[in-house]
Amino acid sequence: MYKIVKKEMMAHNSVVLNEIEAPQISKKAKPGQFIILKVNETGERIPLTMANVDKKRGTITIIYMIVGKSTKNFSMLEVGDGYQDCVGPLGQPTNIKKKGTVVCVGGGTGAAVLHPITKGMSEAGNRVITILGARNREYLILEKEMEKVSNELRICTDDGSKGRHGFVTDELREILENEKVDEVVAIGPVPMMKFVSLLTKEFNVSTTVSLNPIMIDGTGMCGGCRVTIGNETKFACVDGPEFDGHKVDYDSLMRRQNTYKYEEEQACDCMNDKDLR
């Protein structure tokens, strides 16, 4: 069992933070890598990119939004409970080096994955501007933590309840128009990464995105996580999860993400029926 040592509810109880005891994974983990969690015997394998690694405590931290049956099951675990299975660190680490000015763009829970990368970019001597976007101020996460590791932090909300009234792409355009940016890292919902990449392409700024496709084993065996990069098929689990944002076929990725839409709803319905009984 992989024990939860800390749990926090965020964003109106829609997002959960778990710090999990996993000394061996913690020892080897690097920013940008992910783990796969399975809650119990009947659970499915869910890939999640790590938000933090504490090598001294031998823990890893994940932050996830409750979206379906599995994440709902995860959210019912309390401190002292544990996940039956936890495997990692998987995937390639982020290529962190000094590039100059780096803009880190995080949408929704993407901020969680972005945090260690931002920290790394900052420690590598880059000037880091972070843009965080959310539906409204209550759904913003890791604002303080991001502020600590960035030279500048800019906020965008869809309803204008905090920061700029608008999308992260509006804020990013303003930056790109006014100064030289050497690299953009964008992590969040697929449409956000798609539009950030379209924008940075206009300005010819190299862009990294982190993808989270459907996956089973996470070691290159099933091919379920295949994504189209340029004209090539790549496996997000072993070649990624980070890719050149300008080469990703986002439309194909979105279609594949919806493969089990019906089954996912069915699973949630069954669960709700049980809750009612």
């Binding site: 659970g43 499915e44 394998r45 099951n73 089973i216 089954e263 699973a267």
Partner: peptide, 10 residues
């Protein structure tokens, strides 16, 4: 055994 088991299949 879906949905007793959580992993879906087409």
């Amino acid at each position: 055994d879906f949905p007793q088991y959580d992993t879906p299949i087409i």
